[in-house]
Computed example of a mutant assay.
Amino acid sequence: MFKFNNLSNKLTIIACFLIAAILIVVNVINYYQSKDSTSYYLEEIQKKTMFDVNEAYKIYSNSKRSAIASIAIFIEKNPKPNANELFDVLESIRSAGGFDVTYIGFEDDGSLYQSNRVIRSPESTNFDARTRSWYQESKNAKKLTVSDPYKSIEDDSITISYAAPVYKNNKLIAVVGGDYNLHTFSKDVLSIGHSDSSYAGVYDKDGTIVFHEDKDRMLTKNDLSINIANAIKENPDLIDPSKEETLFYAKDEAGKTQVITCNQTLNPKYIVCSITDESVYTDAVNKVLFQQVIIALIAIIIALILVRFTIAKNLKPIAVITT
């Protein structure tokens, strides 16, 4: 029987408490260090994912801009091409740039030539390219412009238009453009930021979902997108990559907390965000805590056995003398 009035037992208990206290302190320190390290690496992974998606966004957007600019250069050098030559150029750029359709509207008569070999004009189809929003916006800006996303009247897809004016001797002669399906963009670019616990999306400054893997969410708002927009309005530094603390929290429509990191896109109207469920962070930290507790318990048990054995062995002569 374990007797507390026995000297060896008393020393064992004292040593056990001291060892347990030391191990608890050491494991608490290790836990918080491991917690910080785990959170840091998860944050870095999320930030890197957001960075990769943003870079892919830039590459895609720049490729579309370059394709439209190449048509503008061709028309500038050949202001009066024949219809077949024009159709061939438009189709080549459409195919190379991944557009749904490319087109050119002429300033002198308002006619529109499309890559699908359709011609529209005020006389034949009562269509005047000069009255279209993409034409007027590019003409007024006097540079390449990108429209806000809109639903196509032809197939109801979410579309964005690139348009660039063409000048000859400082005189506007045409505006070239191309339509691009944003669902294709979402599949090709946002998939980079997709995993079992996180995804990426592009939002405007008011919380409208511009690009999303789920096309039904595009051009809509939800609690999460609104909360993201509000957080950035309150603290614009959250989309400043030069700042260290750019992670923030926002609740989704189910009331679950999401960990967010965002950055400005090539288009100043939009931001790209990487979104991860907070449980990814808490589960990782809880796993570290569980491991630390198990290690501490095992260490205390082993230390208790060793201390008990050592004390009993070394105090045996005293027990003999006492007897």
Rank of each mutant, 00 (worst) to 15 (best):
G207Y: 00
V259L: 11
V26K: 07
R217D: 07
G98M: 08
V166T: 03
A69V: 12
L238C: 04
A141L: 08
E55K: 15
A164S: 13
E85K: 10
E55R: 15
Y270M: 08
I13H: 02
I153W: 04
K243L: 05
T102D: 03
K143W: 01
S39D: 05
V288L: 10
N314H: 15
K269W: 07
G178M: 03
E213K: 10
D223Q: 15
L86Q: 01
S121A: 08
A319T: 14
Y135M: 03
N62E: 12
G255F: 08
I321A: 12
Y32E: 10
V280A: 14
K143C: 03
Y40F: 14
A72D: 02
I295D: 02
A200N: 07
E55Y: 13
I71E: 00
Y270V: 07
K269R: 15
K3D: 12
Q136H: 04
E43P: 03
T220K: 14
L144R: 06
A129F: 00
S111T: 13
K143R: 12
F74Y: 07
D108E: 15
I153S: 11
C16Y: 09
V53C: 05
N286M: 06
P122L: 04
E123F: 12
K139Q: 07
N126W: 06
N140E: 13
Y162I: 04
Y270I: 08
V210F: 02
D52K: 13
T159E: 02
N78T: 14
L297G: 10
D240A: 09
T38L: 11
S186D: 01
I173R: 05
L18P: 02
I192V: 10
I300G: 03
K313S: 13
Q264R: 13
Y32S: 09
A164C: 10
S186Q: 02
K47D: 07
N263Q: 14
N6T: 08
S8Y: 02
